[in-house]
Protein backbone atom coordinates (compact mmCIF):
# COMPACT_ATOMS: atom_id res chain seq x y z
CA UNK A 1 0.00 0.00 0.00
CA UNK A 2 1.34 3.39 -0.90
CA UNK A 3 2.31 5.56 1.99
CA UNK A 4 0.49 8.66 2.98
CA UNK A 5 2.29 11.95 2.55
CA UNK A 6 1.94 13.87 5.80
CA UNK A 7 2.88 17.54 6.12
CA UNK A 8 3.27 19.14 9.53
CA UNK A 9 3.24 22.89 8.91
CA UNK A 10 3.99 25.23 11.80
CA UNK A 11 2.14 28.21 10.42
CA UNK A 12 -1.27 28.88 8.98
CA UNK A 13 0.15 30.39 5.79
CA UNK A 14 1.96 27.12 5.06
CA UNK A 15 -1.35 25.29 5.49
CA UNK A 16 -2.99 27.61 2.99
CA UNK A 17 -0.17 27.10 0.50
CA UNK A 18 -0.47 23.33 0.78
CA UNK A 19 -4.24 23.53 0.38
CA UNK A 20 -3.71 25.58 -2.73
CA UNK A 21 -0.88 23.55 -4.27
CA UNK A 22 -1.72 19.93 -3.52
CA UNK A 23 -4.31 17.59 -4.91
CA UNK A 24 -6.32 15.11 -2.85
CA UNK A 25 -5.46 17.01 0.27
CA UNK A 26 -7.15 16.40 3.61
CA UNK A 27 -6.74 18.32 6.85
CA UNK A 28 -5.92 16.31 9.98
CA UNK A 29 -7.13 18.01 13.16
CA UNK A 30 -8.07 15.63 15.99
CA UNK A 31 -8.29 12.74 13.56
CA UNK A 32 -11.12 10.87 15.27
CA UNK A 33 -13.20 10.92 12.09
CA UNK A 34 -10.54 11.22 9.41
CA UNK A 35 -8.31 8.40 10.63
CA UNK A 36 -11.19 5.93 10.43
CA UNK A 37 -10.52 6.24 6.71
CA UNK A 38 -6.76 5.71 7.02
CA UNK A 39 -6.63 2.70 4.70
CA UNK A 40 -8.75 4.43 2.08
CA UNK A 41 -6.65 7.60 2.34
CA UNK A 42 -3.50 5.55 1.75
CA UNK A 43 -5.02 3.67 -1.16
CA UNK A 44 -6.06 6.91 -2.80
CA UNK A 45 -2.64 8.49 -2.30
CA UNK A 46 -3.98 11.40 -0.28
CA UNK A 47 -1.92 14.16 1.23
CA UNK A 48 -2.54 15.01 4.88
CA UNK A 49 -1.96 18.38 6.47
CA UNK A 50 -1.48 17.67 10.16
CA UNK A 51 -2.47 20.75 12.19
CA UNK A 52 -0.95 19.53 15.46
CA UNK A 53 1.96 22.00 15.22
CA UNK A 54 -0.20 25.03 14.45
CA UNK A 55 -0.44 27.34 17.43
CA UNK A 56 -3.08 29.91 18.19
CA UNK A 57 -6.24 28.04 17.21
CA UNK A 58 -7.04 26.77 20.69
CA UNK A 59 -8.68 29.75 22.35
CA UNK A 60 -12.10 30.51 23.78
CA UNK A 61 -13.04 34.19 24.08
CA UNK A 62 -16.17 36.19 24.68
CA UNK A 63 -16.27 39.27 22.47
CA UNK A 64 -19.30 41.45 23.14
CA UNK A 65 -22.28 39.43 21.98
CA UNK A 66 -20.32 36.59 20.46
CA UNK A 67 -18.25 33.68 21.65
CA UNK A 68 -15.22 32.97 19.54
CA UNK A 69 -13.83 29.46 19.68
CA UNK A 70 -10.61 28.49 17.89
CA UNK A 71 -11.19 25.63 15.48
CA UNK A 72 -8.73 23.31 17.24
CA UNK A 73 -10.46 23.46 20.61
CA UNK A 74 -11.43 19.94 21.70
CA UNK A 75 -14.88 18.89 22.86
CA UNK A 76 -13.47 18.18 26.33
CA UNK A 77 -12.32 21.78 26.59
CA UNK A 78 -15.64 23.10 25.28
CA UNK A 79 -17.64 20.92 27.67
CA UNK A 80 -15.54 21.97 30.67
CA UNK A 81 -15.34 25.68 29.85
CA UNK A 82 -17.34 27.93 32.21
CA UNK A 83 -17.75 30.73 29.65
CA UNK A 84 -19.25 28.33 27.11
CA UNK A 85 -21.44 26.75 29.78
CA UNK A 86 -22.81 30.18 30.57
CA UNK A 87 -23.21 31.66 27.10
CA UNK A 88 -23.75 28.61 24.90
CA UNK A 89 -25.00 25.90 27.28
CA UNK A 90 -26.45 23.73 24.54
CA UNK A 91 -23.06 23.59 22.83
CA UNK A 92 -21.45 22.60 26.13
CA UNK A 93 -24.09 19.90 26.59
CA UNK A 94 -23.71 18.58 23.04
CA UNK A 95 -19.92 18.56 23.38
CA UNK A 96 -20.19 16.37 26.46
CA UNK A 97 -22.09 13.77 24.45
CA UNK A 98 -19.67 13.42 21.56
CA UNK A 99 -18.12 9.92 21.56
CA UNK A 100 -16.18 8.89 24.67
CA UNK A 101 -13.74 10.69 26.95
CA UNK A 102 -10.94 9.51 24.66
CA UNK A 103 -12.69 10.87 21.56
CA UNK A 104 -13.63 14.18 23.20
CA UNK A 105 -10.00 14.65 24.26
CA UNK A 106 -8.93 14.63 20.60
CA UNK A 107 -11.92 15.65 18.47
CA UNK A 108 -12.09 19.34 17.60
CA UNK A 109 -15.04 21.57 16.89
CA UNK A 110 -13.49 22.69 13.61
CA UNK A 111 -13.06 19.08 12.56
CA UNK A 112 -16.66 18.29 13.46
CA UNK A 113 -17.90 21.09 11.21
CA UNK A 114 -15.50 20.30 8.36
CA UNK A 115 -16.25 16.59 8.43
CA UNK A 116 -19.96 17.41 8.80
CA UNK A 117 -21.22 13.97 9.70
CA UNK A 118 -25.03 13.97 9.39
CA UNK A 119 -25.16 12.82 13.02
CA UNK A 120 -22.58 15.31 14.36
CA UNK A 121 -23.72 16.53 17.77
CA UNK A 122 -22.35 20.06 17.58
CA UNK A 123 -24.06 20.96 14.32
CA UNK A 124 -27.77 21.27 15.29
CA UNK A 125 -26.75 23.51 18.16
CA UNK A 126 -24.50 25.71 16.02
CA UNK A 127 -27.17 25.95 13.35
CA UNK A 128 -29.87 26.86 15.86
CA UNK A 129 -27.71 29.60 17.37
CA UNK A 130 -26.92 31.04 13.93
CA UNK A 131 -23.20 30.40 14.37
CA UNK A 132 -20.67 31.50 11.78
CA UNK A 133 -17.18 30.29 10.99
CA UNK A 134 -14.05 32.05 9.87
CA UNK A 135 -12.46 30.35 6.89
CA UNK A 136 -9.21 31.10 5.13
CA UNK A 137 -7.72 30.17 1.81
CA UNK A 138 -4.90 31.52 -0.30
CA UNK A 139 -7.20 34.26 -1.60
CA UNK A 140 -8.15 35.60 1.82
CA UNK A 141 -10.47 35.35 4.78
CA UNK A 142 -14.23 35.01 4.87
CA UNK A 143 -16.85 34.68 7.57
CA UNK A 144 -19.71 32.42 6.63
CA UNK A 145 -22.78 31.01 8.37
CA UNK A 146 -22.33 27.37 9.40
CA UNK A 147 -25.57 26.68 7.51
CA UNK A 148 -24.19 28.18 4.32
CA UNK A 149 -20.88 26.35 4.73
CA UNK A 150 -22.64 23.00 5.11
CA UNK A 151 -24.71 23.56 1.99
CA UNK A 152 -21.69 24.63 -0.06
CA UNK A 153 -19.01 22.22 1.09
CA UNK A 154 -17.42 22.00 -2.35
CA UNK A 155 -16.91 25.72 -2.51
CA UNK A 156 -15.00 25.63 0.79
CA UNK A 157 -13.05 22.44 0.11
CA UNK A 158 -9.64 24.12 0.06
CA UNK A 159 -10.29 26.38 3.02
CA UNK A 160 -9.09 26.16 6.59
CA UNK A 161 -11.63 26.79 9.35
CA UNK A 162 -9.90 28.95 11.95
CA UNK A 163 -12.69 29.95 14.35
CA UNK A 164 -16.33 29.49 15.24
CA UNK A 165 -18.43 32.51 16.19
CA UNK A 166 -21.52 31.88 18.27
CA UNK A 167 -24.02 34.57 19.25
CA UNK A 168 -24.22 34.37 23.04
CA UNK A 169 -27.34 33.18 24.78
CA UNK A 170 -29.10 36.18 26.28
CA UNK A 171 -31.09 36.18 29.52
CA UNK A 172 -34.31 36.05 27.48
CA UNK A 173 -33.26 32.93 25.57
CA UNK A 174 -33.52 29.21 26.16
CA UNK A 175 -31.05 26.86 24.50
CA UNK A 176 -31.51 23.12 24.27
CA UNK A 177 -29.67 20.08 22.98
CA UNK A 178 -31.13 16.59 22.97
CA UNK A 179 -30.06 13.30 21.45
CA UNK A 180 -31.51 9.84 21.03
CA UNK A 181 -29.09 6.99 20.41
CA UNK A 182 -28.91 3.23 20.87
CA UNK A 183 -27.03 3.59 24.13
CA UNK A 184 -26.21 6.25 26.65
CA UNK A 185 -22.53 6.89 25.94
CA UNK A 186 -20.17 6.57 22.98
CA UNK A 187 -23.20 6.64 20.77
CA UNK A 188 -23.88 8.03 17.32
CA UNK A 189 -27.09 10.05 17.32
CA UNK A 190 -30.09 8.36 15.71
CA UNK A 191 -31.65 11.77 15.92
CA UNK A 192 -30.55 14.95 17.66
CA UNK A 193 -31.97 18.42 18.12
CA UNK A 194 -30.56 21.87 18.76
CA UNK A 195 -32.81 24.76 19.77
CA UNK A 196 -32.51 28.43 20.57
CA UNK A 197 -35.67 30.28 21.57
CA UNK A 198 -36.04 33.96 22.33
CA UNK A 199 -38.93 35.12 24.48
CA UNK A 200 -40.31 38.45 25.62
CA UNK A 201 -39.40 38.94 29.26
CA UNK A 202 -42.53 41.04 29.92
CA UNK A 203 -45.03 38.34 29.05
CA UNK A 204 -43.09 35.14 28.38
CA UNK A 205 -44.17 35.00 24.75
CA UNK A 206 -41.80 33.19 22.40
CA UNK A 207 -40.80 35.67 19.73
CA UNK A 208 -38.29 33.55 17.86
CA UNK A 209 -37.58 29.84 17.75
CA UNK A 210 -34.76 28.25 15.82
CA UNK A 211 -34.79 24.47 15.73
CA UNK A 212 -32.53 22.10 13.81
CA UNK A 213 -32.66 18.32 13.68
CA UNK A 214 -29.62 16.17 12.93
CA UNK A 215 -29.24 12.62 11.59
CA UNK A 216 -32.21 13.11 9.27
CA UNK A 217 -30.45 14.43 6.20
CA UNK A 218 -26.94 15.13 4.99
CA UNK A 219 -27.05 18.41 6.84
CA UNK A 220 -29.20 19.66 9.70
CA UNK A 221 -32.89 20.06 8.90
CA UNK A 222 -34.64 23.23 10.00
CA UNK A 223 -37.88 22.30 11.76
CA UNK A 224 -39.78 25.22 10.29
CA UNK A 225 -43.22 23.83 11.12
CA UNK A 226 -42.23 23.56 14.76
CA UNK A 227 -40.72 27.04 14.74
CA UNK A 228 -43.96 28.38 13.31
CA UNK A 229 -46.01 26.62 15.94
CA UNK A 230 -43.94 27.99 18.82
CA UNK A 231 -43.62 31.56 17.61
CA UNK A 232 -46.00 34.00 19.24
CA UNK A 233 -47.09 31.64 22.02
CA UNK A 234 -46.46 31.70 25.72
CA UNK A 235 -45.01 28.51 27.20
CA UNK A 236 -48.23 27.83 29.11
CA UNK A 237 -50.20 28.09 25.87
CA UNK A 238 -48.32 25.27 24.17
CA UNK A 239 -50.28 22.11 23.44
CA UNK A 240 -48.12 19.02 23.61
CA UNK A 241 -49.95 17.09 20.94
CA UNK A 242 -49.86 19.91 18.41
CA UNK A 243 -46.19 20.50 19.15
CA UNK A 244 -45.43 16.78 18.71
CA UNK A 245 -47.47 16.66 15.51
CA UNK A 246 -45.31 19.45 14.05
CA UNK A 247 -42.15 17.54 15.04
CA UNK A 248 -43.47 14.31 13.49
CA UNK A 249 -44.41 16.10 10.31
CA UNK A 250 -40.90 17.53 10.03
CA UNK A 251 -39.47 14.00 10.24
CA UNK A 252 -42.04 12.67 7.76
CA UNK A 253 -41.17 15.37 5.27
CA UNK A 254 -37.41 14.77 5.63
CA UNK A 255 -37.25 11.00 5.29
CA UNK A 256 -40.46 9.82 3.60
CA UNK A 257 -40.42 6.05 3.18
CA UNK A 258 -37.04 5.52 4.78
CA UNK A 259 -36.89 2.44 6.99
CA UNK A 260 -36.06 4.55 10.03
CA UNK A 261 -39.01 6.91 9.55
CA UNK A 262 -41.44 5.10 11.92
CA UNK A 263 -38.77 5.01 14.60
CA UNK A 264 -37.55 8.56 14.20
CA UNK A 265 -41.03 10.12 14.10
CA UNK A 266 -41.59 8.66 17.56
CA UNK A 267 -38.09 9.30 18.88
CA UNK A 268 -38.35 12.99 18.02
CA UNK A 269 -41.29 13.30 20.40
CA UNK A 270 -39.08 12.11 23.24
CA UNK A 271 -36.69 14.94 22.49
CA UNK A 272 -39.63 17.31 22.11
CA UNK A 273 -40.83 16.29 25.54
CA UNK A 274 -37.42 16.99 27.08
CA UNK A 275 -37.37 20.38 25.38
CA UNK A 276 -40.87 21.26 26.62
CA UNK A 277 -39.80 20.43 30.16
CA UNK A 278 -36.77 22.69 29.74
CA UNK A 279 -39.05 25.46 28.44
CA UNK A 280 -41.36 25.05 31.39
CA UNK A 281 -38.47 25.07 33.83
CA UNK A 282 -36.72 28.07 32.35
CA UNK A 283 -39.29 30.08 30.53
CA UNK A 284 -42.52 29.91 32.51
CA UNK A 285 -43.96 33.32 32.89
CA UNK A 286 -45.35 33.95 36.32
Amino acid sequence: MSELKVYTPGEVKEVLKLLHDKEKVRILAGGTDLLLELIKLKREGCVLIDLSRIEGLEYIEKKDEELEIGSLVTFTDIHDNPVINKYAPALAAASGQVGSVQIRNRATIGGNIAHASPAADSLPVLLAAGARIKVLNAAGAETVLVEEFLHNKDKYRNHLITAILIPVKGDNMIDFFGKVAYRRDVATARINMGVRTVYQPENGKIIKASIFLGALSKTGVRADLVEEYLTGKRVDELERERFFAALRETVDKSIPGRYSQPYKRRAICGLGDDFLQELQREGSYE
Binding site: V6, T8, L28, G31, T32, L35, L36, L48, D50, S52, R53, I103, R106
Partner: peptide, 9 residues
Protein backbone atom coordinates in the same frame (compact mmCIF):
# COMPACT_ATOMS: atom_id res chain seq x y z
CA UNK B 1 -5.37 3.76 17.19
CA UNK B 2 -6.73 7.13 16.04
CA UNK B 3 -3.52 9.10 16.37
CA UNK B 4 -0.72 9.35 13.83
CA UNK B 5 2.84 9.63 15.07
CA UNK B 6 3.17 12.97 13.28
CA UNK B 7 0.71 14.34 15.85
CA UNK B 8 2.71 13.43 18.97
CA UNK B 9 5.75 15.68 18.58
Amino acid sequence: CLILVSQIE
